[in-house]
Amino acid sequence: MNYQYLNADQLVDLLRTADHGKDFQVVDVRDDDFRGGNIPGAIRAPSEQRTDQSVEDLVQQLKDVPTVIFHCTLSQVRGPKAARIYADAMAKARQPDEQAAAAKTEDLGTAPSQDAAAAGAGVDFSPNPYLAQQRTDGAQEQQVYVLRDGFGGWQSLHKKDPLLVENFDATIWG
């Protein structure tokens, strides 16, 4: 699997401590069910409007954001599918960069340092495990998540907090 699940309390921590749009980005893939509220700062990317080009554009737009979190209403179908498609497109877009870095290393006749190899071994010493890890080429490894229980679960926990839910309409969620 090329994404992981993120719990609501973990996203609350990010919203309260990290820079939205710089350290992380929430992507809402709901379609007509978007009405009734949303997570502040989320990018709207409706699943029914997804095309290869829109996915490539999103990858380009978020390439420097270390943590990307997808969700739909329940995060059972559309959110996970969007995360998988995005992560696959991100990996495909990154391949030419990795091939160029490998060719440059071969041209210089050098091998990656032990520190770089250890960094790529999946060891995370970050106090916040939801922020990206370093890749062996020195770039940030983007982490892709799906918000567990989607916006339905999110709004049931946080609908009264305007810092965590905006445009809330109780008649839709009642």
Rank of each mutant, 00 (worst) to 15 (best):
Y3I: 10
L6D: 07
H20Q: 00
K22S: 08
K22V: 08
D23E: 10
D23M: 07
F24D: 07
V26M: 06
V26I: 01
V27H: 07
V27C: 05
V29P: 09
V29A: 02
R30L: 00
D31S: 05
D31M: 08
R35I: 05
G36A: 09
G37R: 03
N38W: 08
N38F: 11
A42H: 10
R44L: 03
D52Q: 13
Q53R: 13
E56C: 04
V59Y: 02
Q61Y: 04
L62V: 11
L62E: 03
K63Q: 03
V68Y: 03
F70M: 08
H71T: 06
C72S: 11
C72D: 12
L74V: 08
Q76C: 06
V77F: 07
P80V: 02
A82P: 07
A83C: 08
R84Q: 01
R84F: 02
Y86N: 04
Y86L: 13
Y86W: 09
A87I: 08
A87N: 14
A87M: 14
D88R: 13
D88Q: 14
A93H: 11
A93V: 15
R94F: 05
P96L: 05
Q99C: 01
T105V: 02
E106N: 01
E106K: 11
L108W: 05
T110M: 02
P112H: 03
Q114E: 02
A117T: 05
A118G: 05
A118C: 00
A119F: 03
G120K: 12
V123G: 06
V123L: 05
D124A: 14
S126G: 13
P127V: 09
P127R: 12
N128E: 11
N128T: 07
N128R: 07
P129K: 11
Q133H: 06
R135T: 11
D137Q: 13
D137N: 15
E141D: 15
Q142F: 07
Q143R: 14
R148I: 01
G150Q: 02
G150Y: 00
F151E: 12
G152N: 10
G152K: 04
G152F: 14
W154M: 02
W154C: 02
S156V: 10
H158C: 07
K160N: 12
D161C: 00
L163N: 06
L163V: 05
L164C: 00
V165R: 06
N167D: 02
N167P: 00
F168Y: 15
F168C: 13
F168W: 13
D169T: 00
D169K: 13
A170S: 14
T171Y: 00
I172T: 06
I172K: 04
G174D: 09
G174V: 06
